[in-house]
Design a protein around this nucleic acid. Structure first.
Lengths: 232, 232, 232, 232
DNA sequence: CATGAATGAGGTTTCATTCAT
DNA sequence: TATGAATGAAACCTCATTCAT
């Protein structure tokens, strides 16, 4: 009995090793340019072994992306569960996302691939459904937070929380993607720091969904933080 | 001399024919799935001939995308030039973008590819710079509009107009992309109509950049329009 | 000591089980198309276990073929040993071969593989020599029969009995192979029943090796049998 | 118009070059052991180019075999058309086949593959039908010859000429195959020269299909030839 | 210019065979 | 002995791109 479990665990570990090797290659080369040969070499395995665990390059890509997604969602989850203040929770989620962008920005590119329908068609049903349920959990958490916010009169009640969640997440993600791709270009051409623009965008969107009272709380929070940063 | 010009014109026509054929194929299949063979067949030319006019598949894809971009920008330009009211201009631009989405939504996918740095690396310098300057004109127009808005106290002055433009355009485009890809999924799973969410997002973003006074004007406009629609 | 013997017997039994499973798969799919996975599944064993007992797919194939060969040779042996009349023996051997073809025709394909030198190169020395000695016994028996026939003036004496044996067996086997492969084609295209052609071929070859006197005996035998068949 | 024809011819030439390269490789290694890479290298072409002209390794193999078949059939055709004496024609065909065996024996292996139904399943419809019609011509020629022989009372009339043709060709081919594979073995073990056995088999089969009168003519022919050989 | 043919590259797939446990 | 996993090899297949005419 224990043997079967151990085997199971080892299989998982092997899969994780492959995903980790694939991550390195995909981060460096992107989906199209990366080859299964490169990934096999990075994993120190044969190409056939990769196909033993993942039915296609796209599936493997999705598995890598899901790793990033889970990491990010994990942080969100933690904040949502432990931060009693909705305003603070939103703020900390922004911080977490920014931190994620700073340290693992390549995932952002990957996330943007995930929603392309073109891409989804090439992925196995199993992976797609795994991915879908993961996403679902994520949306549920954010929507839940916003619903609580509405109840607490923190979030405006004239917009459907689900729609709000979509707008919130879409706005944030898309600006990150742009920041990842065009940061240098905007700096060079118009002296714009997209990192700062991301903050601006966040603030605008959060402002837009808060009730007037909560907006004051949010501004106070930003102010306090700003002061704290400048003190250190 | 006239002969050279005629040749030039014919060459342009041939390029346009190729782009039009490529558009049909890319619309149906997407960048990765579409093949040069299919495009050649659609254009009733040989594959090699495509390469006489475009150095790579990506270049051709970009050429198609640029066609859509120019069409959309043309409409924006016209509104910006002829609509004296900033608020009305923003509103009409939203309408134009929504109309564009309704009729040529496949371009939205393409636009999202354009900003991927992975993609840009595979494109010829010439095409890239053409694309960049086209984009530049576009940004200039929007930023110009917002600057005028700041001067007229229509647009809030505490956010850099360039940043605002980026946020505005990025938010709008990203929701369109999501609507293109996930419309059915959201309808099915949570009974969300992403078309409506797009409107919500627009309204939220525009609200967020207007001064309080202008916001009233905007709401009046929406109200009037709403009434007009329900009358007909 | 008894334990070792039991082990030995069990090992043999296991080998036989594998050969039987392999037989089913090879009969259905042929050497090239059949896979070790399929055989392993049919044997309810892992692929690796097959390799504990047989060093290669070809060896296993040969083991299966040898089973058929032994069965057929056994019948021949029995006839040769117990049938005093050479003419009757030849006739009964033909009958036995035809019966074998009717009930286990798939072996005929396998036999034809055996003689391909390409094939032999891929087989273990041990298996090859087992196979060779089996074959040797077979040839020895037929040649012995023919030699006896020569002594009894049943078989013509101007052709070497060994050559005769080769011709006899080769002709018979090759027509069977053709019948196995092309039966339907000949029926369809030229309304030829290769089963009947096999009989024709046998008769021609036997006719060709008998002395004139024996030929009459053979014809009488055929005639008697023909009458018996038509009576029933 | 001439251009199209020239292109056509060049395409044929290229195909022939590939077939010739493949022939060398298949002769050396056999169907299973030979790889498309080796053939590509031998042809000094890329593997992809091979697949441009032949849809599979099996098709290419068949094309090679067909080359040999056509060569052999050509010689038969020539004899059948120009040799007025049926007996002489049969004899010269045997000589031609023996000569073919001496100089291009590897084809014999290939021919034996052709009739395996296993093999045929892996071949394109086009190639299969080309092959079938080639074979048909061949059978038609031999059957025609035998029919003429029956009319001229050279060939016995109590066996269907088609069946006779099958027996004749099958016997001859199968002994050649055995000679190709087992020549050394028989020489070593029983001091049998299969080359001579082939002659024996031919003589037996031809004897078996001739009328008594023709058989005398045939023996005279063999005798004359034997004398001629021993004189030189 | 236009094109048919060629090609290098790499993804996908399948397998016989081997290895570590 | 038995096995799950790994693997090297190669067929198969598709394409973007290039070349020779």
């Amino acid at each position: 009995m224990g043997i079967i479990e151990r085997k199971e665990r080892e299989k998982e570990r092997r899969k994780d090793e492959i995903v980790e090797a694939a991550r390195r290659v995909f981060f460096e080369k992107g989906l199209v340019t990366a080859t299964m040969d490169e990934i096999a070499e990075a994993a120190e395995l044969s190409k056939a072994t990769l196909y033993l665990h993942f039915p296609s390059k796209e599936d493997l890509y999705l598995a890598v992306a899901m790793g990033g997604l889970r990491a990010l969602h994990g942080k969100f989850q933690e904040i949502i569960e432990h931060e009693p203040s909705i305003v603070r929770a939103l703020h900390r989620m922004k911080e977490a996302y920014m931190e994620f962008f700073r340290t693992q920005r390549q995932y952002v590119q990957m996330f943007s691939f995930l929603q392309m329908s073109q891409f989804h068609k090439q992925v196995s049903d199993h992976m797609r459904s795994t991915c879908d349920s993961e996403n679902d959990k994520h949306w549920e958490a954010i929507i839940g937070l916003l619903r609580r916010g509405v109840e607490q009169k923190i979030i405006r009640d004239d917009i459907d929380p689900t729609e709000m969640a979509i707008v919130l997440w879409t706005n944030a993600s898309s600006l990150m993607l742009r920041a990842d791709n065009e940061h240098d270009m905007w700096k060079r051409r118009r002296n714009i720091d997209l990192r700062k623009t991301m903050e601006t965008s966040f603030r605008m969107t959060i402002d837009a969904i808060l009730t007037p009272a909560a907006r004051l709380e949010y501004q106070a929070l930003l102010h306090a933080e700003h002061a704290a940063v400048h003190q250190s």
